[in-house]
């Protein structure tokens, strides 16, 4: 093996992730230079650490789905449905551990339904999941009468310190997000599930001819997105002790932005978990960093937009889709 092709391959395999790491470092440098005193205050990073795990749970499964050639918007509502199921069951006195599993199953079930709908009827995943996004949100608002649910009682159950407590001051949700990242990295790159997703998103006809069940793979990817959304919703609900019916909506565009800023191209077949983590970092720090350097919140949207466009140009620079 000669050196040049080795470097080319390295770049091919990791270039997209490297791009998003570059964005992250650049952003950190700008914020640090812009507001060094705000940057060394720990509470700035703490608010990022509340937001980041949730975004990780939402964004990384989306990388799987986008790599499979589909997209989902409904996750932002699935987030609330799973959290609602969790909060409601906790409220009526069921063991929160069981409620947590029920929330995960809810997420998986919604993902399976959305995926099946899209795959079986050959619907556009963008439009169909947009429909489901509104539909489920409507259901939640109707069921709850737009009222929130408070579940202070979770604090007394073992699940609270385990999932969202503090371990010598270290927030446990960061630990679980890290475990999730490692698990997903292997799941995407070294497991049949991830490999089949990449084949399916790359060329579904080829995958089908080689005996891969394309529809099953896609439905599983939608289910994984549902599970991620449920994790995000339940973690947030536990951290704040409150389910509120509009929750999750604010993450819709942020999680999608994180996927693409993270270096996963929109056309399917490719994806990067490491890139997505840094994509989440960029988006999460953008949310707090703009304020920290003394600009008004309105600039956040402006810069989020700018960075998405830069990410797209990055895809272009990295090369066209090979066929």
């Amino acid at each position: 093996m000669n050196n040049k092709s080795f470097i080319n391959n390295m770049f091919h395999k990791n270039g997209r992730a490297l791009g998003s790491i570059g964005y992250f470092i650049l952003l950190m440098a700008i914020f640090f230079i812009g507001a060094p005193e705000a940057w060394i205050r720990p509470n700035l990073h703490q608010s990022v650490f509340v937001m980041m795990p949730t975004l990780i749970f939402l964004t990384i499964p989306l990388v799987f789905l986008v790599a499979s050639g589909e997209i989902d918007l409904s996750f932002a509502s699935t987030y609330a449905v799973a959290a609602y199921v969790f909060a409601l069951l906790v409220k009526i006195g069921i063991d929160p551990g069981i409620c947590f599993v029920a929330g995960l199953l809810t997420g998986a079930a919604i993902g399976a339904l959305v995926g099946t709908l899209i795959v079986v009827f050959r619907l556009s995943s963008l439009v169909a999941s947009l429909g489901v996004l509104f539909l489920l949100r409507g259901v939640i608002l109707l069921l709850t009468n737009s009222r929130s649910i408070t579940i202070m009682q979770v604090e007394n159950h073992w699940i609270y310190p385990l999932l969202v407590g503090k371990f010598y001051g270290f927030p446990m949700q960061i630990f679980w997000a890290a475990i999730f990242i490692i698990f997903c990295y292997y799941f995407f790159n070294k497991h049949v599930f991830g490999i089949h997703i990449q084949h399916v998103g790359d060329n579904s006809v080829s995958a089908e001819q080689m005996g891969i069940n394309v529809n099953a793979v896609k439905i599983k990817a939608f289910m994984f997105v549902g599970v991620g959304a449920a994790l995000g919703g339940m973690f947030t609900t536990m951290i704040t002790y409150t389910f509120f019916p509009t929750q999750g909506f604010g993450y819709l565009l942020l999680a999608l932005a994180a996927v693409f800023v993270g270096g996963t191209p929109y056309w399917g077949g490719l994806g990067t978990i490491i890139g997505a983590v840094f994509g989440v970092g960029v988006i999460a720090y953008m949310e707090v960093g703009i304020i920290a350097i003394g600009w008004s919140g309105e600039w956040r949207q402006f810069f989020n937009g700018l960075i998405i466009l830069l990410a797209l140009l990055g895809h272009r620079l990295h090369g066209e889709r090979v066929r």
Binding site: Q198, D202, S206, A207, M210, I212, L270, V322, R323
Partner: peptide
């Protein structure tokens, strides 16, 4: 006839596609 390959994936992934 169309070779049933996935061009963005590596040679090794293509050789073992579906029978990893």
């Amino acid at each position: 006839q169309d070779r049933a390959l996935t061009p963005q994936q590596s040679i090794v992934k293509n050789i073992f596609m579906g029978k990893e």
